[in-house]
Nucleic acid binder design. Structure first.
Lengths: 172, 172
DNA sequence: TATTGTTATACTCTATAACTATA
DNA sequence: TATAGTTATAGAGTATAACAATA
């Protein structure tokens, strides 16, 4: 548990992080927006997967993922295959062209970051990466919901909108 | 200087940070978008200032700042005053209403973060804040431009677009 | 009837460029 | 002529909702 002041600072720093993110986006190939790059990176790291899984990894709604994927498919960076186990699903796979693009992206990221973080030690970067990963994980989980019943939630109590990012709940 | 692999990871974590940022945005009052909140926070922290200074602090183009500010002025959260030293400038100041809103924002941020980061020590949060601040600073400075002449740049050599974020260079 | 994925629409943030008013 | 700030326009990311195909 941290002090109130710390949380304020963290919120501020997170909000102000846009500049760094944009700075990094600027080094991407001009036909590869950050969203597409994220798709490629996830497929490279975790291998072939379905749309729903990808949306979960990227922590954005599936409709968003669908658009990024469609874009990458148009460019020939990834391919879509029917899932033999379920006709509704599509399996996504990096193409050779996609792998080549990823190498280029990695090069540019490394160049940009090594310029920007020239004064940082390897340990500094490592610590930041680790903390960011933990932060991300903390926000990936469904809202913790300030405990009340230590046991599971009362069966059927869905008062709190458990923001699921893979699918927008339709209120039909 | 960190390893190539580290930079890849950092780039990935930064890209994936959107979810955490959105998560935090969601707790803001519904009529206060993140951009407006950033304006209020900066004014609270650094006091009365001009548009140009604010744009620099937020690290976004002044046109963007202008819109956020206009929105906050409409809501009565900040006020604009003529600068006695320069008739072109406008001094921005938090209003009482703005201060009250900031308290509310701070409350909600602290609540959300303490829920999410319940397992974190105060030191963990502190280290993350510190590293994020350093990261931000690294991207605030104009591009370092992989050294060539150790002395200053040749007078008149403006080949590299020194991405200034306060003002978009018009190519008239 | 429920689920996977797509598409249409709208909102927010952002940069670019043109415009004004002061200097 | 140059600078501070505004506004109009366009591009990217995202969520919501409605829809198609399959289970």
């Amino acid at each position: 548990m941290a002090a109130r002041r710390r949380y304020d600072e963290l919120a501020r720093q997170l909000g102000a992080l846009g500049a760094a993110r944009r700075g990094l986006s600027r080094v991407l190939p001009s036909d590869c927006p950050p969203g597409a790059a994220a798709v490629l990176t996830a497929l490279d790291r975790y291998g072939e997967m379905r749309m729903s899984k990808l949306a979960e990894l990227l922590a954005v709604d599936m409709s968003v993922t669908s658009r990024h994927v469609a874009y990458a498919v148009e460019r020939g960076w990834i391919s879509r295959h029917p899932d033999p186990l379920d006709g509704r699903c599509r399996l996504l796979r990096l193409t050779g062209s996609g792998v080549k693009l990823l190498v280029q992206i990695s090069d540019r990221h490394a160049t940009a970051l090594s310029e920007r973080l020239s004064g940082w030690s390897d340990e500094d970067v490592g610590r930041l990466v680790e903390l960011l990963a933990r932060l991300r994980a903390a926000f990936d989980e469904p809202r913790p919901r300030a405990a009340a019943r230590p046991a599971g939630p009362a069966p059927g109590s869905r008062t709190t909108r458990t923001t699921r990012t893979t699918r927008t709940p339709s209120r039909t």
